[in-house]
Amino acid sequence: MNNKLDKIVKNIADKLSDYQYLKRIVYNRNNYIKIERNVINPFNELMLSNGLPSLCVLYGELNEQYPMEGWDIIGHKYMRQMGKLIGKINSRKGNWIVIDV
């Protein structure tokens, strides 16, 4: 990547590394979408397309490009967070997310 693009990507990745900041942004009322009579937030912490797994992919790729910068540690932090979320779902029997395919 060129130097300017590197800075932009790293700046965004650095901001997204703060889980509390991430949740404040994604759950901000301006990030909800109105579809007919429903208001939804497309963020789902456990979905690959728009949740924490996609951030793990991002940090894994950043670690491949910049192995000495600690991006793998951030990715691992999000993997642990996903484990906690899965544990919460498993502990609440009958409270599963159902997705029609």
Rank of each mutant, 00 (worst) to 15 (best):
D6N: 05
N38V: 03
K15W: 00
K93M: 12
L22R: 01
Y32R: 11
R29E: 07
P42R: 15
S91K: 01
L22W: 00
K15Y: 01
D72S: 10
E64Y: 14
D14S: 14
R29V: 04
E36D: 12
S17H: 04
L48K: 14
F43Q: 05
K93I: 14
L22I: 02
G51V: 05
G51R: 02
Y78W: 12
I99P: 01
N28Q: 08
N41W: 06
K7F: 07
E45C: 03
K10H: 06
K7D: 05
P42L: 14
S54W: 06
G87T: 06
L5V: 13
P53I: 05
Y27R: 03
Y59Q: 03
D72R: 02
L46I: 15
D18G: 03
K34F: 01
M1Y: 02
N38I: 06
K23V: 07
K23A: 05
M82P: 04
Y59V: 04
L52P: 01
R29C: 03
L58I: 07
E69Q: 15
I25M: 07
L5E: 05
A13C: 12
I74K: 00
L16Q: 00
R92E: 13
K93C: 08
I40F: 07
W96P: 03
K88T: 15
D72Y: 04
S54P: 05
L85F: 03
Y66D: 07
L22N: 01
K7Q: 12
N30E: 09
Q81G: 05
H76L: 10
M68T: 09
Y19C: 01
N44T: 11
L58N: 02
N95G: 04
L85G: 02
W96A: 12
K93L: 13
I74S: 00
L62P: 01
P67T: 02
V39D: 05
I8S: 09
K4A: 13
M79F: 08
R24W: 06
